[in-house]
Amino acid sequence: MSNETLRFEEAMSKLEDIVQKLESGEVPLEDAITLYKEGMELSAYCHGKLQDAEEQLITIIDKEGKPAPFNPAKGQEPNE
């Protein structure tokens, strides 16, 4: 699972799939080992991604659909 561009929600949904597959108990043992490993890696990945997310991206979109950074505390575009 070297794919660092994997999005959090994709990783979460993969994780859910793995849980469901394993819970079904219908996975052969060899596959279960692979799934187990992958699931553990995914959970660590999700945890890390969530942990590291500090700076939130907030943009304001004008009438032409152009985005600009936005600071809600100031209530307007910082460059204005």
Binding site: M12, L15, E16, I18, V19, L22, E23, G25, V27, L29, A32, I33, L35, Y36, G39, M40, S43, C46, H47, L50
Partner: peptide
């Protein structure tokens, strides 16, 4: 995530 981890572990160890 922790819950999923537990589930995976539980299912897996159960299967074993």
């Amino acid at each position: 995530i922790l819950e999923r981890k537990r589930s995976i572990y539980k299912s897996f160890s159960h299967q074993i």
